[in-house]
C-alpha cells in the first residue's frame, strides 16, 4: 500500500522528491566538511566526520532506488517478484560502509583520549610540541 502511494506522489512531485533526497545528502556533506575545516576542538572534528559519512550513505541508497520498486526479499508466495525489486548492490556496499565508519570513529576517539592525557587540552591550536 505504501509503495503505490509513494509511486503516485513521485510521479506528480518529481522535482521536490529529487531535491529532497539528493539535496539533503549534499547538504549533509557540506555541513560536515565545514565542521572539519573550521572548528578547533577535536571532538567536534570527529562529529563532522560522522556527519559526512551519513551524507554519503544516503546518496548511495538514493541512487539505487527504482520507481515502483519493492524491498529485495523473497516472501513466501511471491517468488516471481524479481522484476519489481530495487537495486540490491548499493545496499550491500552501504552495509559494509556503516560498520567500517563506526570502527574508524572509535579508533579516532581513543586517540583523542590518549592525547588529552598527555597535553591536558583537546584544542588543536594548543598542541604545539611538534612545531619548529
Amino acid at each position: 500500500m505504501m509503495q503505490e502511494e509513494f509511486n503516485e506522489i513521485f510521479v506528480k512531485y518529481h522535482e521536490i522528491i529529487t531535491l529532497g533526497v539528493y539535496g539533503t545528502s549534499i547538504a549533509l556533506m557540506l555541513i560536515g566538511l565545514y565542521a572539519v575545516l573550521m572548528k578547533k576542538n577535536l571532538v567536534k572534528i570527529v562529529i563532522g566526520l560522522s556527519i559526512i559519512d551519513a551524507g554519503i550513505h544516503l546518496l548511495f541508497v538514493g541512487i539505487g532506488y527504482i520507481r515502483g520498486g519493492t524491498a529485495p526479499i523473497f516472501s513466501p508466495g511471491y517468488e516471481n517478484a524479481a522484476n519489481r525489486m530495487v537495486d540490491p548492490v548499493p545496499q550491500a556496499l552501504v552495509l559494509t560502509a556503516i560498520v567500517i565508519g563506526f570502527a574508524v570513529t572509535s579508533v579516532a576517539l581513543s586517540l583523542i583520549i590518549r592525547l588529552y592525557k598527555h597535553h591536558n587540552t583537546a584544542k588543536i591550536d594548543q598542541i604545539k610540541s611538534l612545531k619548529w
Partner: peptide, 8 residues
Amino acid sequence: YLLQAPDV
C-alpha cells in the same frame, strides 16, 4: 526505510 532498504 522509505527508500525500500530494510537491512540498511
